[in-house]
Amino acid sequence: MTPARERYTHGHHDSVLRTHAWRTVENSAAYLVPELTPGLTVLDVGSGPGTITIDLAERVAPGRVVGVDTSADVTRKAADLAAERSVSNANFVVGDAYALDFEDASFDIVHVHQVLHHLADPVAALTEFRRVCKPGGVVAVREVDYAGTIWYPELPGLAEWMALYQRVHRSNGGEPDAGRRLKAWAQAAGFTEVESSASIWCFSTEDERRWWGEAWAERAVASGFADTALGSSLASTSDLERIRDAWLTWVSSPEGWLSMPHGEVLCRV
């Protein structure tokens, strides 16, 4: 059962879903590619708009892939996307990461991307992922580490964004710097064979800056992040508008560059 104080920081505002829909196996799960072979069964926990899930389904066909998310609306949209792409071996269900509606040892791979940093008890969730993974299978997790984010120009408004993001995220029960903790969490969940790695997202070209920065400019004032910041009195409207403006300044800067590091683990069952 989801802990009472836990809340998804970003929400499902369109500005959030647009950035999530950019994610693919290639840009967000490359560390898992060597494990993907035809015929495997895969569970994708926190599947969101389904872009990674559908990529996984195409790579393991005719194997079955199930995407699980907490939002019924998001899972419906993901199912529609699978139909549009004529991917018939992926389906999407509503579920709880702490209490998955699957029997023990149901999947060859359990894939998790950007989920644990939103959870109040990531070790409990990892223990549940281990339960539904087959002996000899793998639980694969990739999580951002917000404190490691680097940007240029070094705009004060983006430093303000980072400080506020850390407070907002933790007020929702999550851990924004999850990437560095993945190995420890996996070991605490009972995994004895854990392979660790890291990778980054980098946004630098004009198109990349516009796509990422304009989305965050909107998220700063209109998403679940903004709702929590205002509702918990962690920031004022003018604070959020200042952060929005800093993102737009970064977008317009030809020298603009940003990297976000991620921790990754392959946990053998």
Rank of each mutant, 00 (worst) to 15 (best):
S106H: 02
V74H: 02
V110Q: 02
D108V: 10
A105D: 15
D104T: 11
G173Q: 10
D96C: 04
M162E: 15
M1W: 09
E128R: 00
V194L: 07
T149R: 09
W250E: 05
P62G: 08
A220K: 02
D104P: 01
L17C: 04
F92P: 03
S47Q: 05
A83P: 05
E26T: 14
V66E: 12
F225M: 09
S223A: 05
T24H: 12
A217H: 04
G11Q: 02
W151I: 02
A90E: 04
E143Y: 03
G174R: 06
T149C: 08
G136P: 04
V123P: 02
S15K: 08
A215F: 02
V112M: 00
N172P: 00
L40H: 08
T192P: 03
W22Q: 14
D14W: 10
E143G: 00
V74E: 01
T51Y: 01
F92L: 08
A78G: 06
S236Q: 00
E255C: 05
R131H: 09
E175S: 13
D177P: 05
S171G: 11
Y165W: 12
Q114K: 04
A57H: 06
D55E: 12
L32T: 09
T9F: 06
W216A: 01
Y8T: 12
S232W: 11
H111G: 01
G263H: 03
K183L: 15
V42M: 07
L230M: 10
G256M: 05
A246K: 07
W247D: 09
V138L: 06
S236R: 08
V221K: 03
H111M: 01
R64Q: 15
E255D: 15
R59T: 12
T75E: 13
A147H: 10
L119I: 13
